[in-house]
Simulated scan of single mutants.
Amino acid sequence: MTQTNEARPEQVQYDIAAIMGGIYGDGIIGLKAAFEREWVQRLGEELAVLYREALARPGGAVGRGSNRHYVEIHPEDISGFVDLVMHPWVTTVCEAVLGPRYQIVEIGFDVPNPGAKDQPWHRDFPATDETLVGRRLNSLAFNLTTVDVSEDMGPFEIAPGTQWDDPSSFEHGMFPPQSLWGRYAARAQRKMPRMGDISARSALTIHRGTANVSDKPRPVLVLGVDAPGAGNDERHDLQITRRFWEQLPESLRGHLLCRLVDELEPIVQGHTIEGLMMGDA
């Protein structure tokens, strides 16, 4: 799965001020048509197989609400991993926000299936002192849909600027009390990306998946990237086989915070707090 029309990094210049302003302001930015639809279609086919396998394996998927799952995968499970992480927009955003020594710590996907309900407003993990005191964002979540999202498919909803909200009243540092939900609903933006679009956000910006009342699932790929020392790698198990490692560009290897293995091991999903607070899948 090769991104044949991708411009080389040296041919592309992105507005660093706009990137920083978007992540530190609204908490989310995006790039339209970053990948060809054929590339995304192949990715969607691969994720469908991985999803079936995960559901059949104990601990292979974690519930994130009714009819909604998250599955963490291995980089070499998808044929377009290198295309994704070396896309010039992705690398530029990572370097601008997280610094030149950014670390890829997570690859996985969410699937809100038909019948998925509104999630509670939440963050993906608690904010640390680096953000609460130092006012620095030290992690990013990239999202790439594998379908054209419509209003009835349970679009992702985000409340811009809320990455800076005080979490002192949040359960587990992640889930705001219902007394604050009106604030997020008033600020909410629904995202309707199309195949090929990619976004980057602070996972601390308050967001939720909405109800999927269609007859189609809405799979979305998730790439997690940290600044050095952010610590989100402790929540994940990024594995790469030595044979795959040898095939990777040298410039990419230094950005992968992973363990090298001879054979890939099944990932047992964590995120138990999210599953508890969002209900059974």
Results as ranks from 00 to 15, higher is better:
Ala34Arg: 06
Arg242Asp: 14
Gly161Asp: 09
Glu95Trp: 00
Arg8Ile: 06
Gln103Lys: 15
Asn67Ile: 03
Trp121Arg: 04
Thr205Met: 13
Val62Thr: 11
Gly115Tyr: 00
Gln247Met: 13
Ala33Asn: 15
Asp197Arg: 02
His236Asp: 13
Asp233Gly: 05
Arg68Lys: 15
His69Gln: 11
Asp165Val: 10
Pro193Gly: 05
Glu246Val: 05
Leu84Met: 14
Ile273Trp: 06
His271Glu: 14
Arg42Ile: 03
Met278His: 14
Gln119Pro: 03
Gly254His: 13
Arg187Glu: 08
Arg243Glu: 14
Val133Ala: 12
Gly59Met: 06
Ser139Phe: 05
Met174Phe: 01
Arg253Trp: 09
Ala54Thr: 05
Asn67Ser: 04
Asp15Gly: 06
Gly182Ala: 07
Leu256Thr: 04
Tyr24Arg: 01
Ile198Cys: 09
His236Gln: 12
Val105Cys: 14
Asn5Tyr: 14
Leu47Asn: 03
Tyr51Lys: 15
His236Thr: 15
Thr145Ala: 12
Arg136Asp: 08
Arg57Ser: 13
Cys94Ala: 15
Ser66Asn: 12
Ala48Cys: 07
Ala127Ser: 14
Pro167Ser: 07
Ile29Asn: 04
Glu53Val: 01
Gly22Lys: 04
Trp164Asp: 08
Ser79Arg: 08
His236Phe: 15
Gly270Thr: 02
Pro228Ala: 08
Ser199Glu: 05
Tyr70Met: 13
Pro176Cys: 00
His122Gly: 11
Val268Cys: 07
Ala203Arg: 01
Ile107Pro: 11
Asp26Met: 09
Arg208Phe: 09
His172Ala: 13
Val40Cys: 07
Ala141Lys: 14
Gln11Arg: 07
Asp129Pro: 04
Ser66Val: 04
Arg57Lys: 11
Glu157Asp: 02
